[in-house]
């Protein structure tokens, strides 16, 4: 990514127009595929955590993974930016492609991959640094900024995009941990978008937050999808219904069903999906 591309909208004009016009359900089919997973299997030691997952994730849309806890949805999410590499006993088979390149290929550098695929975690985890340094951290290590003014602009732009600028612009030197839970999570989102990723993974980003903070994050997610491809894991079906255009239902390590959010919630094909959505198990 170049500096110029980062501050601009990187959605092509014609696509933008199509997005505005077409109903959401249509858009999913029409849009190019950003992430394509084929027959992904994950093992933790002897435990077969994920079985033959095949899914396409469309660009500039929000894709939600839902399912009961322990179903493998977070595990799969962590495969997309290779966060599972940090776990010694974890072994991954199958193929995950981003822009038609296998991210588990030997030529792929995991550091660069993660700059391209950002992640936001369940619990807000700001670094024990100032708000400013939290945002500047990523651009600095990736050599995206040179000099103070450059960094200042970058920090401001990222915080603005995350809708946090107004709240923190006077106290950038305070530690990130001094913010409220919701603000911390938006700080983490700002931190993630500061390195201009193409995909942002969100692992239950609202589970530690109160309803008002949750609503703000959800609004933010909806705005961000213009510029980024977003994959969100959530345990809340309402949230999935509210923010996502595509939904995938995981159960016991198996991807049971995927499709347009509307269709999954109104007319699920699989009995298990139906049971989960109607609250028979969860």
């Amino acid at each position: 990514m170049t500096d110029a591309a980062m501050s601009e909208d990187n959605t092509p004009k014609e696509l933008e127009a199509a997005l505005e016009k077409a109903p959401e359900t249509e858009a999913v089919k029409a849009l190019p595929i950003k992430v394509r997973a084929t027959d992904v299997n994950v093992f933790y030691g002897d435990n077969h955590a994920l079985k033959d997952v095949t899914i396409d994730i469309p660009e500039h849309r929000v894709t939600a993974f839902i399912g009961p806890s322990g179903c493998g949805k977070s595990t799969f999410l962590r495969c997309i930016n290779r966060m599972n590499d940090t776990i010694d006993i974890c072994r991954i088979e199958g193929k995950i492609e981003i822009d038609d390149r296998d991210i588990y290929d030997r030529s792929i550098d995991v550091v660069q991959l993660r700059a391209k695929v950002g992640m936001v975690f369940q619990k807000p985890n700001p670094f024990p640094k100032s708000i400013y340094d939290n945002i500047a951290y990523g651009p600095r290590i990736h050599g995206m900024v040179a000099g103070k003014t450059d960094t200042d602009e970058m920090v401001e732009a990222s915080l603005k995009r995350a809708g946090l600028w107004a709240e923190v612009k006077d106290r950038l030197a305070q530690p990130g941990t001094s913010l409220s839970g919701g603000q911390q999570q938006r700080l983490c989102i700002a931190r993630a978008i500061a390195v201009s990723p193409q995909v942002i993974l969100m692992d239950e980003p609202c589970s530690a937050l109160d309803p008002i903070a949750t609503a703000r994050i959800e609004e933010l997610i909806d705005e961000l999808r213009r510029n980024f491809t977003i994959v969100i894991v959530t345990h809340s079906m309402q949230q999935a219904a509210r923010v996502s255009q595509k939904t995938a239902f995981f159960h016991l390590g198996v991807l049971v069903e995927q499709g347009n959010t509307e269709q999954i919630f109104t007319n699920p094909v699989d009995k298990r999906t139906q049971d989960y959505i109607t609250g028979r198990f969860g």
């Binding site: 930016n81 966060m83 940090t86 550091v111 660069q112 991959l113 993660r114 700059a115 391209k116 950002g118 992640m119 975690f121 619990k123 985890n125 700001p126 670094f127 024990p128 951290y137 990523g138 290590i141 990736h142 983490c188 931190r191 993630a192 390195v195 993974l201």
Partner: peptide, 14 residues
Amino acid sequence: PQSLRDGSFAMGAT
């Protein structure tokens, strides 16, 4: 906490 490590790795830090 591991979450801080994860946060940093997810940013693409070595």
